[in-house]
């Protein structure tokens, strides 16, 4: 097990290294001088000097990359050109909002997706299975930004129950305020992931239902709901955990479109702002942050899966 984890980490290192080299090289690819991309075109001489010191712009390219990587690993992602704040601080301010949205969307997805999958799998090929599959296809096919607009039209413009633009209210500060502001974006994203969850779990359930132990359970006279509830669902949920984990990884930064629909202040909106303001240190910082988070959560999902399924031998 430990060997497996170490091997996975060793496999990830080159990926992280190449990807961060790509992110670092951005400042050389954009128009203008690299120092301009780091501190902005109207920076003071002191700021320019400090940046040159920090990343060693007078040094050979590899030395510069190493200096940048070293400060990045130590948490120094430079300063935003626009606000002059440290990039890492700006990102950390947005993390709770993105986490709250991602987790609530996952919850909505599970609440909508699991019943759909279980009912479909119990009556495969029936009209109810076909209509639920149609629902999943719809959930996956409707662009989130259009669904978000429709939900705003219904709940904010017509019914006036919820605000059309959401802000971040922590669920720990004000549960009701958090619900008011997170419900629509979480529902928008949740409908989408419920489609993925439902399809995956249905397929997983159907393949488990064909297994020998199910025939044994049935032949010993177990009620169908016990066969499914006690045996099948447990086994089918194993691979399903992976999919839920992958979705959560994708939600770090991947919620950018939904955040834009509801002007929700998460990491995605920070990136859009940074791109619009050509704030390259901030762009680099956000992308690097999302990259590392994405890769690490994926790794954790793999490890968790190996841990909860003792049948898998990774040696």
């Amino acid at each position: 097990m430990t060997g497996y984890i170490i091997r996975r980490i060793l496999q990830l290192l080159p990926v992280l290294l190449i990807a961060s080299a790509g992110i670092w090289a951005m400042i050389y690819a954009v128009p203008g001088t690299p120092i301009g991309a780091i501190v902005g075109e109207n920076a003071t001489p002191e700021q320019i000097q400090a940046a040159i010191q920090r990343v060693g712009l007078d040094q050979p390219v590899l030395v510069q990359f190493w200096a940048w990587l070293k400060s990045a690993v130590l948490g120094d992602l430079g300063r935003s050109i626009h606000s002059r704040d440290p990039v890492l601080d700006l990102i950390m301010l947005r993390v709770p909002a993105t986490l709250q949205l991602g987790l609530s969307a996952t919850l909505v997805g599970l609440i909508l997706g699991i019943p759909v999958a279980v009912i479909s799998a119990l009556y495969p090929g029936s009209w109810i299975d076909r209509s639920l599959s149609g629902w999943s296809a719809l959930a996956l096919g409707v662009p989130t930004f259009w669904l978000g607009i429709l939900l705003i039209l219904l709940f904010a413009v017509q019914l006036r129950w919820l605000p059309s633009a959401s802000t971040y209210v922590s669920v720990f500060d004000s549960p009701l305020g958090a619900l008011r502001n997170t419900f629509l974006p979480a529902l928008t994203l949740g409908v989408y992931v419920s489609g993925i969850f439902a399809r995956f779990l249905r397929a997983s359930l159907l393949s488990e239902l064909k297994a020998d132990y199910v025939r044994t359970a049935r032949s010993k006279g177990l009620k169908e709901r016990d066969v499914v509830g006690r045996h099948v669902l447990r086994n089918a949920l194993l691979p399903f955990v992976t999919v839920v984990g992958l979705m959560m990884a994708a939600f770090i930064g991947g919620t950018v479109v939904t955040e834009a629909v509801f002007t929700y202040p998460g990491i995605g909106r920070l990136l859009i702002q940074a791109i619009n303001q050509r704030d390259y240190p901030l762009i680099q910082g956000v992308i690097l942050f999302v990259l590392v988070a994405h890769v690490l959560i994926n790794l954790m999902v793999d490890v968790l899966y190996a841990y909860i399924d003792p049948r898998i031998d990774y040696s």
């Binding site: 951005m26 991947g254 990136l271 791109i275 762009i283």
Partner: peptide
């Protein structure tokens, strides 16, 4: 794997930023 290390839309946004 490097191309997959970011959600697709963020990858596209990073490219457009450049």
């Amino acid at each position: 794997d490097v191309l997959l290390s970011l959600p697709g839309i963020l990858f596209a946004m990073a490219l457009i930023a450049v």
